[in-house]
């Protein structure tokens, strides 16, 4: 959707009604810190990892203050339990007694500063990636001349699958706000996803494109989708800024927000291609 509106805005500019965006100084209120969670568990045989930090004032560009000395453990639906140990300040990793598996359900517990938080997630079914291939295009303005990497793979029959695609060029993740790719199968259910171009600019000889396809839980899909909107929320059709959901909840109850971020389970399937 956002891309469409970007294109429409480009259309306006083409009409000579050039709008403009400039940076302005602004005093915004400063809020007290909340616990921020960035954690995942995949089906790739590696233990869970969690990064804990505190939120900081919006215009504070220093690295987020890590939350150290917290107690974290992960339980699954088979009754197993894993304790996550702090590796570097604020970064915690499990011991491997709980690993991600398709169909598994997991609960992460975080105890810090006298508060207990819980986050629940699951790992869902996944299709496979058939291949990442190359396609030569030369039809500007849509595509400048050159090679583009395309994704090819099936989508599982039955609505209710959700995906994130992570694209790496020469080992570096495309991770600008507008490069977050999240999608549901609502419009493509059970279809073969072929010839889906994954990069914006034409590739040159020697470039390597790797695509990771993550099958993500429904709630995490909404989290990513909301996050996507908030970090790309500029323009004529922007929405009023609003908080992104979280699955990290304080066990003490109460309706007010106490933590932000997400602990997510997902599968990872990947393939890559090198431009000859």
């Amino acid at each position: 959707m956002n891309r469409f509106f970007l294109l429409l805005t480009a259309g306006l500019a083409a009409c000579g009604l050039s709008s403009c965006i400039d940076v302005v100084p602004l005093d915004v209120p400063k809020a007290g810190p909340l616990l921020s969670v960035d954690g995942q568990l995949t089906d790739q045989g590696k233990p869970a990892t969690v990064t804990l930090a505190l939120t900081q004032p919006y215009f504070n560009d220093t690295p987020p203050p890590p939350v150290t000395g917290a107690t974290l453990f992960l339980e699954d639906d088979l009754g197993r339990r894993d304790t996550l140990r702090e590796q570097t300040p604020g970064f915690y990793r499990g011991q491997g007694t709980v690993l991600g598996r398709i169909g598994g359900r997991y609960t992460l517990t975080i105890v810090t500063a006298g508060q207990t938080y819980r986050a629940e997630t699951e790992i869902r079914r996944t299709p496979e990636v058939d291949s990442i291939s190359l396609e030569f295009r030369n039809d500007p303005p849509s595509y400048d001349e050159g090679y583009y990497a395309t994704y090819n793979g099936p989508e599982l029959p039955g609505v209710g699958d959700y995906y994130r695609f992570k694209v790496y060029k020469n080992g570096v993740l495309f991770n600008k706000p507008e490069e977050l790719i999240v999608s549901s199968d609502e419009l493509v259910d059970g279809k073969y996803i072929g010839g889906l171009i994954v990069n914006e600019d034409p590739l040159v000889s020697g470039d390597k494109i790797k695509v990771e396809m993550l099958s993500v839980p429904r709630d995490y899909y909404f989290f990513l989708n909301e996050l996507n909107r908030q970090i790309n929320n500029v323009g004529l059709f922007a929405t009023s800024p609003a908080n992104v959901r979280t699955n990290v909840r304080s066990t003490q109850g109460g309706a007010t927000q106490t933590a932000v971020g997400y602990f997510a389970g997902y599968t990872v399937r990947a393939d890559s291609v090198v431009v000859p």
């Binding site: 209120p29 960035d38 004032p57 504070n60 993740l173 991770n175 970090i231 800024p241 908080n243 932000v260």
Partner: peptide
């Protein structure tokens, strides 16, 4: 307007 921010997988997210 946001009064705080956090970082999720390298992306800076506004929060109120």
């Amino acid at each position: 307007v946001p009064d705080s921010r956090y970082v999720y997988q390298g992306l800076v997210v506004p929060n109120v």
